[in-house]
Design a protein around this nucleic acid. Structure first.
Lengths: 155, 155
DNA sequence: GAGATTACTTGACATCCTCAACGATCGAGG
DNA sequence: CCTCGATCGTTGAGGATGTCAAGTAATCTC
């Protein structure tokens, strides 16, 4: 644990960290929104596309995005109109509509992710130990919901 | 350092961390939105109130929130209508409108912050060393803009 | 003093968001 | 098999957010 650097100040309080997390979250979304806008997508459209790395029901999208089903309908409508996603009735339950990326949608997601990782240049500057520590610490502050299923988590 | 748990796997890649950051940011905003909604505020209204711990010009709000000035006008209008903020012409430049929290607005911000820190229970479980590490790591991934002025950073 | 720039506001229009209601579908229970 | 309650996605009303363009007032520069 390379932690020999003299501590410049006292350890931050939880409140100070809360503020820093706020700034970090805002910075993350600023970066994401910029990347999405370069593809003519709004923040929400970009978020939804990124969630769809595996097909999923609209209900699930609404849960992950913490918004109402009718809102998801609107967003999917607009993405569908642009040829980025399509709806598909689930075989096991005809009420359920799965949303899938089209080829174009997958390409768009790939490009967004590539640009996003570029925009988070600071990540590349972390060594393996730092990255492990960050994963652990973030995992403690934001525990993953009892591992339900999806690898594509909320974003 | 209570870290006797066996290291489960190799260090995460930057891409894996990017995804975790996305999930963390989403979780943070879910928490924040819930707290704001309990006060009858939308996410943006809550964000703006939280930024206003010191008075600032609308131009500054637009910069921090990364949105258009006209959008800020609308949000301030609605907050002003609810008695949470007020506008004040700056003495040095009559074009400039500073936005200030009212007493009621300050109270609201205090309550929001108190509830938010409660909702981020994981922060309290970090010891001082972890908190310092998290501060350092977040600071590397999301460098603060060349320290301009405000303590109330973007949120 | 004139023209350029800045700060905020207004307005049009698109998108997002919640809530309520609806029709189609499913599943449990009798 | 039938009924009823629950679920899923959609529609629609109305409010909030967001961009862009244009306008007015104030300030700055030459």
């Amino acid at each position: 644990m390379t932690q020999s650097a003299p501590r410049p100040a006292a350890a931050p309080t939880p409140v100070e960290l809360m503020d820093q997390l706020a700034r970090a979250a805002a910075a993350y979304y600023r970066c994401f929104a910029t990347v999405a806008a370069e593809r003519g997508l709004t923040l929400m459209q970009g978020k939804m596309l990124s969630l769809l790395r595996t097909p999923m029901p609209m209900r699930t999208l609404a849960d992950l995005l913490a918004c109402d089903a009718s809102n998801v309908t609107g967003i999917v409508d607009r993405l569908e109109a642009r040829g980025l996603v399509r709806r598909e009735v689930a075989a096991a339950d005809r009420r359920v509509k799965n949303v899938l990326l089209t080829e174009q949608g997958e390409q768009t997601v790939r490009l967004i992710r590539a640009e996003l990782i570029s925009g988070l240049a600071g990540l590349d500057q972390l060594d393996a130990e730092d990255r492990s520590a960050l994963r652990r610490l973030l995992g403690q502050v934001f525990p993953e919901p009892a591992a339900t299923t999806t690898a594509a988590a909320a974003r």
